[in-house]
């Protein structure tokens, strides 16, 4: 990781993984929010495994960053916020599949998603955008030169 090209190569994979997540889970969320009616939500959901692939890639590449320079991450408020948002997104996934997915799966091509699914979609999209923002800000809040209210 500390070789000349190790870090930027893994960073590129990490960005590819987040694009996969936005392109599949994010696009599914956009449809539930109300964009692109005419596309059945159940059909669009078939892209989600690619997003899980992107997520897995990012957990692996993310772990490579953290284990290579733990002090730069564990004490970094941007990284801590990122983990918290990932936890919220994770709980949101569990609640979504338990509460709202059955109706989404049965909905017609032009149907709106039910309120529960819409709320889950807004939470999901907000969390993942927040995760990208925090990820990009990790380099700004490098310990020990930073400030935040809980630091």
């Amino acid at each position: 990781m500390h070789s000349t090209w190790g870090w930027p190569a893994v960073e590129s994979l990490h960005f590819l993984g987040l694009s996969l997540l936005i392109g599949t889970v994010g696009v599914f969320d956009l449809r539930m929010i109300g964009l692109a009616k005419g596309i059945p939500m159940s059909a669009l959901h078939k892209l989600v495994p690619w997003g899980i692939g992107g997520y897995t890639l990012n957990v692996l590449t993310g772990a490579m960053f953290v284990t290579s320079a733990p002090d730069q991450y564990l004490f970094n408020p941007a990284f801590q916020t990122k983990l918290a948002l990932m936890a919220i997104a994770g709980i949101n996934v569990l609640v979504f599949y338990r509460v709202a997915f059955a109706a989404v799966k049965l909905a017609g091509a032009d149907d709106s998603a039910q309120l529960a699914a819409k709320v889950a979609a807004v939470i999901s999209l907000s969390c993942w955008i927040g995760v990208i923002v925090c990820g990009r800000l990790i380099t700004v809040f490098r310990p020990p030169y930073y400030w935040c209210f809980w630091c």
Partner: peptide, 28 residues
Amino acid sequence: VFHSVAMGFVVGIHIAMNLRILGCAPGV
């Protein structure tokens, strides 16, 4: 930050479109 988030969406929507053209999610 704006550049990264927006690039994520630009590439993401391209990924969705291209995966569909390549045969994924044929019901779309």
